[in-house]
């Protein structure tokens, strides 16, 4: 049986979401990134349009670069000591977007204040002209102080800001709405909550077509199959017409794949493990490429070599999809 004989017709498409604003849109970004738009199971172009190609964001932290694994320290060097230099490095490494993680605002990880974060966001926006993802520390009380301020500081730049959860969404929804940003909606590995966060944001007045979902990410080998199946269920429901699951999906690949044993254990730690440098690179690469198969639209990554391999894979998938297109 030819694969195309399994083709189904789908009622709807994943939403198309643009992040960033150029001068033409009254922002200061050099380009915008547009994701989503698929009308098929990922890459099955014989069913319908595959939509926009997935984008790669590189992760940049507001602090604590010294905690990154040695395999990344050697590649980023001193850039990890200064967020703005770090962001420029990420742009050099070929990022489509910068994912600025404000982890240093976490009460236990530096407790940086809103003023400091505002200044940092402004500096990053001035230093690189890529679209920006801004990610809070995940502590509701702190995010609700910091994120409205950075949202305002980045007004008009059409950033993607997160995260909104089912327990804490009102403040961020109001900020993103007022300042013209996209919303990153987080759910803890749970399709029902993913849908609920979206309807809550909608009921609070936020347009569903301006949401990107973050359904939680796992590294390969660490609950990866759960995430994959949740993303697939979401995609099937979305293209099947459920407007509360039509949102494109972000995968936090770098953070997750660099904290597993396989990306950190030394060359000789286990028989058959092989050299760490190559192993860690491949762990991130394969985690990312597998998420491409489940419909990941933004991959947040770290290793420039992994970025290159994933970009090559995306090129091949896009070319293959074109050849098979309906």
């Amino acid at each position: 049986m030819k694969a195309s004989e399994t083709a189904q017709r789908w009622a709807a498409a994943i939403n198309t979401v643009t992040i960033g604003a150029t001068a033409a849109e009254k922002g200061t970004r050099g380009k915008v990134v547009t994701i989503g738009g698929a009308k098929c199971i990922p890459w099955m172009s014989y069913e319908g349009d595959i939509g926009n190609r997935p984008a790669i964001a590189l992760e940049v932290w507001d602090s604590r670069g010294e905690t990154w694994p040695a395999g990344l320290q050697s590649l980023y060097g001193d850039a990890l000591k200064d967020t703005v230099t770090w962001a420029k490095k990420a742009a050099e490494f070929g990022a489509d977007l910068i994912c600025l993680r404000l982890d240093g605002t976490h009460p236990d990880l530096g407790d940086r204040g809103a003023d400091e974060s505002v200044a940092l966001v402004k500096s990053v926006l001035a230093a690189v002209d890529l679209p920006l993802i801004i990610w809070g520390c995940g502590i509701a009380e702190k995010d609700n102080i910091v994120l409205p301020r950075v949202s305002e500081a980045a007004r008009g730049e059409n950033c993607l800001i997160g995260t909104a959860t089912d327990k804490n969404y009102r403040t961020l929804v109001a900020s993103c709405l007022a300042d013209g940003h996209k919303l990153l909606a987080e759910s803890p590995l749970d399709i029902n909550i993913a849908k609920q966060v979206n309807i809550l944001a909608h009921d609070a007045g936020f347009p569903l077509e301006n949401i990107v979902m973050f359904p939680t990410t796992a590294a390969m080998g660490y609950g990866f199959d759960y995430v994959l199946s949740i993303m697939e269920r979401g995609r099937l429901a979305g293209i099947g017409g459920d407007q509360l699951l039509m949102q494109p999906v972000l995968c936090d690949v770098g953070l997750e794949s660099w904290r597993v044993k396989e990306a950190n254990a030394g060359d000789d730690s286990m028989p058959g493990y092989g050299p760490l440098a190559e192993r860690a690179l491949m762990w991130e690469t394969l985690t990312a490429t597998n998420y491409l198969q489940a419909g990941g639209d933004i991959l947040v990554m770290r290793h420039p070599g992994a970025v290159k391999l994933v970009r090559d894979t995306i090129d091949k998938l896009v070319a293959g999809a074109k050849a098979l297109a309906a």
């Binding site: 399709i191 029902n192 909550i193 849908k195 609920q196 309807i199 809550l200 909608h202 009921d203 269920r233 429901a237 017409g241 459920d242 407007q243 509360l244 699951l245």
Partner: peptide
């Protein structure tokens, strides 16, 4: 035929 969420009645009617 639909995916659950806590607001499943409103979610269905939206669609």
């Amino acid at each position: 035929r639909t995916i659950y969420c806590d607001s499943f009645i409103d979610a269905y009617k939206m669609g």
